[in-house]
Nucleic acid binder design. Sequence first.
DNA 1: ATTATATGACACCTTTTGGTTTCGTGTCAA
DNA 2: TTGACACGAAACCAAAAGGTGTCATATAAT
Lengths: 111, 111
Amino acid sequence: MTVSSTKHDVFQAIADPTRRELLSLLAEKEMSVTIISDHFPITRTAVSKHLRVLSEAGLVTEQKVGRETRYKLQPEGLRELKQWLAYYERFWDKKLTALKNFVEIKDIEHN
Amino acid sequence: MTVSSTKHDVFQAIADPTRRELLSLLAEKEMSVTIISDHFPITRTAVSKHLRVLSEAGLVTEQKVGRETRYKLQPEGLRELKQWLAYYERFWDKKLTALKNFVEIKDIEHN
DNA sequence: ATTATATGACACCTTTTGGTTTCGTGTCAA
DNA sequence: TTGACACGAAACCAAAAGGTGTCATATAAT
């Protein structure tokens, strides 16, 4: 176990479009569940469930303030995804490099 | 519609751990369905379905060669993910920058 | 021509997911 | 103290996801 106990993994957490919208909303500022729910056509309960998934994946943090629960983005949770992606970037960079070389050679041929 | 007709989106495609394994396997080299299936504890049919999802998300390409279908990684399909992620990188970079400044100030204070 | 291989298409099953409604509890305001 | 509000928990539901087994078909090999 690295840092946050991730019952849900990041990949699964961001798979749902509503949850991605939640992330982008919470990127702007910390918000309570009810306020967050006002931005979505689904019930507060449903939003709450999504928030829990995001929380368990370490993508948001929750803080109780009086009777409300404030959520905010925890961008560090996306590190795992970045690392995963970095592995594959090599492959398309490789292709790009090949294309670049090809174009340059063509350019030389034209002179 | 951008480039490849993406019935399944990338986010959903990479949510499944088996599909992520498929990607890493196909990153090494092009392979036929049966050969691919040998690397997994599930049936060929199941693997085939996963491959279709990946294909529809633009993450692999399929090519028929005689009676077999060869699949290979199409890393460009991950661009969308990279872009999405880039947006959030700003947020954790911001925090890193703040931390860096803090550490530097502390360092100055120590002199 | 006959047999073996590689694969997709179905039909089907079970679990997970995304959603709802209802209810209980803690907290704030009058 | 009596409402009103914010929320989580629970029970429930339909659809999607991840599997399986069987069958038909195209291609290769004998």
